[in-house]
Every structure is written in structure tokens, then in C-alpha cells.
């Protein structure tokens, strides 16, 4: 202590604070580490348990349906009439696939253009506008998309097509296209930026135009990443519920056109889940549709994993 008070540089002493702190420091410590390690691990395992529980719980209800309805009659049945014991989910499956396909048809070209713009053409200032805009687009709640679709897009389609309502796959496809844009753009932009610059410079040095380089070098090189962006957008579109339900018109038949009322797996589930008694075949059929959605989503995730592996392999080759 005296060392402190004399103003001289203190040195460790065997008395006073030095000794006191030293004794404590060299003492045994209580090891709570193991408890924390256990909690961290348990948290991680909780994720595994969650996905397993979802598969089991949804799968169990679906299995209950299949004791009464043959899986093929469910999957390929064209008529959905629970009151007559008919549980054909084909209209919904077709609706989901058609709406998703339409969304990608519109969303992917637009999104790819947006990604190219952001990755290669936009000035820093334009980027400062575009990036937050895309984040906002991602943040808009899906019911709000549905509400705008219902109050603006559906009447617009009605006016310009001459159809009675304006509901249908076209409206769903357009709404979904906008909704998948943020997912697609951010992933595709990452893919474009991940292409090594020397490849690009190599092409430019040969006297090609900027666009030739983008179209013939950049996009092919980034292709696996762009494909992954497309697949994830597809997963997002096929699982989207509220916005789609609000603009579809909800008719459980295989749609005869793009501007007639239709249904998807998700829209049918959300409409009926609260109003069918638990354990009834009609309720179980909703779980079977949920299982179908779940399997499609998991399949898409596996596909994305495969393209990602290809992408890393491609980049490694490029180097």
C-alpha cells in the first residue's frame, strides 16, 4: 500500500492488497462452465427437437387421414368435398404450383435485373436508396400485401380484364412476385458479387462491353448461386399464406384460368383450420396438406444445399 501512497511505481508486494488479491487469484475457482456449456448445447438441440416435433405432430394427424383416405386419392383426387367424404387435394396443389410458377415467372427476371443493378451498375448513392427499399419490402407484413392486393390489384385486374371478380392466380402470382423480390435480390446479388473480379476483368480486357461481360461471364459464373436464390424464392412463395388467401377468391376447384377464383394448399388450411373439429377427417386433411407443404419445403432446402455445394466447388475451380 505504501507503494501507492508514495507515488512511486508500485511493485507487487507480499503484503497488503497485493497479497490479498494474490491469494484470491491463486485459489480454486468455482466452475459453472459445465452448466453453461450444457445450456448452450441444449439450446442447439432444441432446434433439432423442434423440427422433429413438427414432422411428427403434423405427420401423425396426416397419417390419421390416410387410414380413411388412400394417399393417392388425396394427392390426385380432383374433388374436394368433405361433406361427401371426398378429400382430393389436387386443386390446391395445382393452385400452389401455378401461383408459385407465376410468381417466379414475374419475380425472377425483375429480381435478377435488380440484383445486377445493385451488384454492378448502381452508384453508391443509388445503392443507399435501393438497399433500404428492399429491406422495407421484406419487412412489410404479408397481410398488408394481401390488403393492398385486395384493394388495388384485384379491382385493377377486374377493370382491365372484364372478369367478374378479378380474384385468381394472376393476382396471387403478382403479389407473390413482389414478396419474393427481397429474398431473390439479396441472394442473387451475393452470388454476383462472389464471382472473382479477375474473371470479370479478364473479359473486359478482351474488349467486350459491360453487358456482354455480365451476360456471358458474370451470370454463368454466378449461376449456382442464382439458382439457389430461385429455389429459396420458390420455397417462400409456396409457403406464403395470408396475402395469397386474400386475393385468390378461394374456390376449391382446379382453376380454368388465371383470373378465376382458385385455392392453394396454404389458403385452404388457413380458411378451414379454425372451423373444422379436431380429429375429423376434414381437419386431418388440412394436416396432410401441411405435411405436403413441409415435404416440398424440405425438398427445396435439400436442393439448395446441393446447389450451394456446387457453387463452392465452382468458385474453387475458378481460382
Amino acid at each position: 500500500m505504501s507503494a501507492l501512497n508514495t507515488g512511486r511505481t508500485a511493485v507487487p508486494t507480499q503484503t497488503g492488497v497485493g497479497a490479498a488479491v494474490r491469494t484470491r487469484l491463486r485459489g480454486r475457482r468455482r466452475d459453472t462452465g459445465a452448466i453453461w456449456r450444457g445450456l448452450f448445447f441444449a439450446s442447439a438441440i432444441f432446434l433439432v427437437i423442434s423440427i422433429a416435433a413438427i414432422l411428427v405432430m403434423v405427420g401423425r394427424q396426416a397419417a390419421a387421414l390416410f387410414t380413411q383416405v388412400r394417399p393417392l386419392a388425396f394427392l390426385f383426387g380432383r374433388v374436394w368435398a368433405p361433406e361427401h367424404g371426398l378429400y382430393g387435394a389436387l386443386p390446391f396443389l395445382v393452385g400452389s404450383l401455378a401461383a408459385t410458377g407465376l410468381a417466379l415467372l414475374i419475380g425472377v427476371p425483375l429480381g435478377l435485373a435488380g440484383a445486377i443493378y445493385l451488384a454492378k451498375l448502381a452508384t453508391p448513392r443509388a445503392q443507399r436508396v435501393m438497399r433500404p427499399a428492399i429491406e422495407l419490402l421484406a419487412g412489410i407484413p404479408s397481410v398488408v400485401y394481401g390488403w393492398v392486393g385486395l384493394t388495388a390489384l384485384v379491382p385493377f385486374i377486374r377493370r382491365h380484364s372484364g372478369h367478374v371478380t378479378g380474384f385468381g392466380l394472376l393476382a396471387a402470382g403478382v403479389v407473390l412476385a413482389v414478396m419474393v423480390l427481397p429474398t431473390f435480390i439479396s441472394l442473387a446479388e451475393d452470388a454476383l458479387r462472389a464471382v472473382p473480379q479477375d474473371i470479370e476483368h479478364g473479359s473486359l480486357a478482351l474488349g467486350t462491353t459491360r453487358w456482354q461481360t455480365i451476360a456471358h461471364v458474370l451470370i454463368p459464373a454466378a449461376w449456382p448461386g442464382i439458382a439457389a436464390a430461385g429455389i429459396l424464392s420458390m420455397a417462400r412463395a409456396i409457403g406464403e399464406t395470408m396475402a395469397v388467401q386474400m386475393v385468390l377468391g378461394n374456390s376449391p376447384v382446379i382453376p380454368a384460368g388465371l383470373i378465376v377464383p382458385a385455392s392453394t394448399l396454404t389458403s385452404e388450411i388457413v380458411l378451414e383450420m379454425g372451423s373444422t373439429p379436431q380429429g375429423s377427417p376434414a381437419n386431418n386433411a388440412l394436416f396432410a396438406m401441411g405435411l405436403l407443404l413441409l415435404l416440398i419445403s424440405l425438398g427445396l432446402i435439400i436442393a439448395v444445399r446441393a446447389t450451394r455445394k456446387e457453387a463452392t466447388a465452382g468458385v474453387r475451380q475458378a481460382h
Binding site: L4, A10, V17, A20, L25, G27
Partner: peptide, 23 residues
């Protein structure tokens, strides 16, 4: 360091800090 090795007394910590900073 001292905190994580079991010293929690504020006065001890303050003096340890002063000493270390002097050094």
C-alpha cells in the same frame, strides 16, 4: 482478470486496478 478469478470486493478491485495502472 481479478473479477473472473473471484475477487468481487469493490475496494480490493479498486486498489488492484490502481496498483496495476501505476505499474
Amino acid at each position: 482478470g481479478p473479477r473472473h478469478h473471484g475477487v468481487s470486493n469493490r475496494a480490493l478491485l479498486a486498489e488492484a486496478a490502481e496498483e496495476a495502472l501505476h505499474q
